[in-house]
Every structure is written in structure tokens, then in C-alpha cells.
Amino acid sequence: MKVYYCGREDCEKGHFFGPAVRSHQLIHFVLKGKGIYRTEYGEYEIKEGEAFLIRPGEVTYYRADLEEPWSYAWIAFDGDEAETLLERYYPDRRLPVCAMGETAAVSGWFEGLLGSFGSAEENRERVLGYFYLIMACLLRTGKGGVPVDEEGYFKRAVAFIRHNYSYPIQVSEIADYVGIDRTYLYRIFMRQAGVSPKQYLNRYRLEEAKEMLVQTEYRITEIAYSCGYHDSSSFCRHFQKETKTAPARYRRLNCYKKTEKMGENCGKNH
């Protein structure tokens, strides 16, 4: 993969380019405002949070809106991996528009890319690093142009929670790991799980805590830290709010039920 050039511009009203052809793959990421993009397949209205692809050799034209002109950043690239990469996001040549999962992150990464690309000691690995971070913000589309990664994002976020719930992780860290912004992550969780990422994380921690209370003899403080709480009082407060009972009492009640059912000794309350 080779990045040839990149840039950023706040366009004037009605600013246009073309009709013209380009020699490399070129993607414009619309960070604010809107405009139109025209190819041989039709005309497309592009708005903030979308990115349009210009393929090499295609005659294209684009123009900023007359009322809300766009601000965009662009990146030109090519190489053996280019087509494989673009197939994920632009599988249909008739649909050269793709959604972005996080506009703010793209804007920040472009700042890093522009700084790295224009430096006296240009670092190819750093340039490519920013390039892949930016590309990872695009939402993979199907033949109908509909994002199909939502379930994948959700599963990736849940896996991150499952492996890291014992640490004091934040929702922003989950979003960063998945590669989308926290607003989009919130919408995904509300659609997929019916709760926010923060609620899901808290409930996951409490479910793990319940299991540890009944199945182990660890102290309440040890369980609290093991489930990502910074102290036992915070853990007890969350636990009681969710279950309407204190952790120690929950342990006694459920150990008693377990003993009755299985006829086994249960761990002492600590």
C-alpha cells in the first residue's frame, strides 16, 4: 500500500472540481456540511459523516453545497492491497458513497497523517498507521450500500468487555478498541441489547460477581476488585441497587439454596 498525497479543506460555497480523472484511488471524507458528487453512474448527495470514492480513470465532478459547503479531508493511495481493501467498503461501483462511524476520530487522525506526511523525516510506517486507522472508521457495506458491520461491532465490544471487565475500563476505551465513536457504539448497544454500553458493562460485572459470591469463598473486597470496582463500598452500592440486596446477604441466601439443592457445603461469608 502506498499513500501518494493527502489534504484538508474548508470549501467556499459552490466550490467545485471537475469533470476530471484521477490516477490513484482517492477518498474524500466529509467532516462537516454537504455537497454533491457525480459519476457516470449518477449524482449523489453527500453529507457530514460520509466518504466518497474516486476511482482512477473515472470521470467525476463534485461541488460544495450553496448553503452549507462541506469541509473535507482526502487521501490518495494505491497498491496491491487497495482493491481488496476497497471491496469491503465499496463493493458496488454504482454506490461510491460509504458511511463513517466516527467523524471526530477521522478528523484527529488526519491531523496526525498530515503532520507525518509533510515532515522532513517522513515515516512510512506512521503514515500507513494513520491511513489504516482512518480506513477502519468506514462502515463496511453490502451490495445495497447498507452497513453490515453493526453486529460485528457489537460482538467485538462484548468480547472486549468479557476479557477486560475486571479492569477499570471506560466506554471510550471500548469504542476505541472497536474502532467507532462512543455515540455510534451507544446506538448499536441500544439496538442489539436494549441497554447502553455502560449499563451492559455494569450488568456483566454484577453477573460475574454473583457467580463468584456463590461459587467461591473469596472475600467481598476481593470480588469487588476482581470485577472492576475500585473499592468494596462502590461495589456494594452498585450490587444493592441492581439486586435489591447486599452482596453478603445474596451469598448467604444463594449458598443456602445451593446447599439445599445439592446437599453440599458452601463457602463461608467473608
Rank of each mutant, 00 (worst) to 15 (best):
V171I: 14
F16T: 05
K258N: 11
G18R: 08
A105W: 07
M135V: 11
Y186H: 12
F16V: 02
W74Y: 15
M1K: 02
S172H: 13
F154Y: 15
W74G: 03
G263R: 12
A20P: 01
G101H: 02
H15N: 07
R38Q: 12
I169G: 05
M135E: 04
P96H: 09
I134G: 01
Q199F: 00
Y165N: 04
V106T: 02
T259G: 14
F160L: 02
P56C: 09
M212D: 09
C236Y: 00
E43N: 06
V158N: 04
E125Y: 07
R124Y: 10
E45K: 12
G42T: 07
D149C: 15
V3Q: 06
M262T: 12
L66Q: 09
R251G: 06
D92Y: 03
N269K: 09
Y218E: 08
S234L: 14
E217R: 09
Q192G: 02
L26H: 11
Y167S: 13
I134L: 04
C98W: 06
L185M: 05
S196D: 07
M100H: 06
Y5L: 10
R156I: 00
W70V: 06
P197K: 02
Y153S: 01
A136D: 07
W74P: 04
E81A: 12
T39R: 01
V214N: 04
N265T: 12
V21F: 09
L53A: 02
K257R: 15
L53Y: 12
T183C: 06
E68V: 08
E208C: 14
S234H: 10
E83D: 15
G142L: 05
L31Q: 05
I188P: 00
I180K: 00
G129R: 05
I36N: 04
D231K: 11
K143D: 08
G145S: 07
E40F: 02
G142H: 01
R88M: 13
G144R: 09
Y225M: 12
R156W: 01
A175H: 05
Y5T: 12
Y256P: 02
H24F: 12
A248D: 14
N254I: 04
R182F: 00
V195L: 10
G152Y: 08
S71W: 03
E67Q: 11
E207A: 13
V148D: 06
L86E: 08
F189M: 07
G33C: 05
G18L: 09
A209I: 10
G145V: 01
H270R: 14
S226V: 01
F110N: 00
Y153Q: 00
V146A: 09
T183N: 09
H270N: 13
E173R: 10
E45G: 10
K261A: 15
C236H: 03
L206M: 13
C137I: 00
G144S: 10
A157I: 03
P19K: 01
D181N: 14
E217T: 10
D181Q: 11
Q192E: 15
H270S: 13
I169N: 03
F16R: 00
R252F: 13
E83P: 02
S172R: 14
R93C: 09
V21Q: 10
G49Q: 06
N254Q: 10
G118P: 00
L114P: 00
N123H: 11
I134W: 01
N254H: 15
N254T: 04
E208T: 02
V127W: 03
G228R: 03
D92F: 08
H238R: 07
T259E: 15
W74M: 06
Y218L: 14
Y5A: 10
S226E: 12
K143T: 07
R252Y: 13
S166M: 05
C255Y: 05
E12H: 14
